[in-house]
Each structure stands twice: as C-alpha cells, then as structure tokens.
C-alpha cells in the first residue's frame, strides 16, 4: 500500500507528533518502506484464525479490593514539569 505525505500528516496528528515541512518527504519515504514490509501479511489466508493478543492462554488474576496505597504525592510529583498547589498544570484548556 502506498502512503502519501497527507496520510503521514494525518497519522502524525493522531499521534501528536509534529513533522516539519522539510522532513515530510523523507519521513513519508521511510514510513512507506516499513509499510511495504508489513504488506506481506496480505499474502497469507487467516480467515479462521483466532487473533492472538498475548502468548500462552493465561487468564486475568484478580486483586482483593483493598486500599494499599497511601498519599505519595510529593515523591510522585517531584519530576512534574509544571505544578502548583498539588495540581499538574497545562496551558489553559477551553471547552
């Protein structure tokens, strides 16, 4: 499947990555090469195969409903890039 610069820009926006105008051709070309690699998947028939999300057919374990964590805000927020009064800060969001 071929991919256009516009496709790449659309995907980049979904992934919140900015691609500069000057990088776009090369990014598109390399991206296309990777897609060419994975297009091989189309050559195998898997009609009846159940998709595999995880190795080994294990089941989810459950945790008892107990509060095991106490407030550790100071340590956990120590490397926050912007904070005030216990809040993480981001530029004003207008809904």
């Amino acid at each position: 499947m071929s991919v256009s610069p516009q496709d790449v820009e659309k995907v980049a926006l979904l992934a919140r990555l900015a691609i500069s105008e000057s990088d776009l051709p090369e990014v598109t070309e390399r991206f296309g090469r990777v897609l060419g690699l994975v297009d091989e998947l189309n050559t195998i028939d898997t009609e009846t195969v159940v998709p595999m999300s995880n190795p080994h057919d294990m089941h989810q374990r459950l945790r008892p409903d107990a509060v095991t964590r106490q407030n550790n805000r100071e340590n956990l927020m120590a490397s926050a890039p912007a904070q005030d009064q216990g809040y993480f800060l981001v530029p004003k969001v207008i809904d």
């Binding site: 459950l62 095991t68 216990g86 809040y87 993480f88």
Partner: peptide
C-alpha cells in the same frame, strides 16, 4: 490500590499507576 473516597486534596489519591508513570501496570480489582 489507591482509595476512591470523594473529596481528597488534589492528586493525593493518585498513585504511580493512576498517574500513568513509566513501567506501571494495571492489576484488576476483583
């Protein structure tokens, strides 16, 4: 394992899993 009580001071009831810190994993509450 963080508490769910309503009305705590901001981010005092959020542990590393709730904050999505690197390497943290979910474990399901029965």
């Amino acid at each position: 394992g963080s508490a769910t009580v309503f009305g705590a001071a901001p981010n005092e009831q959020a542990d590393a899993v709730d904050l999505g810190m690197p390497g943290m994993l979910p474990v399901l509450n029965e």
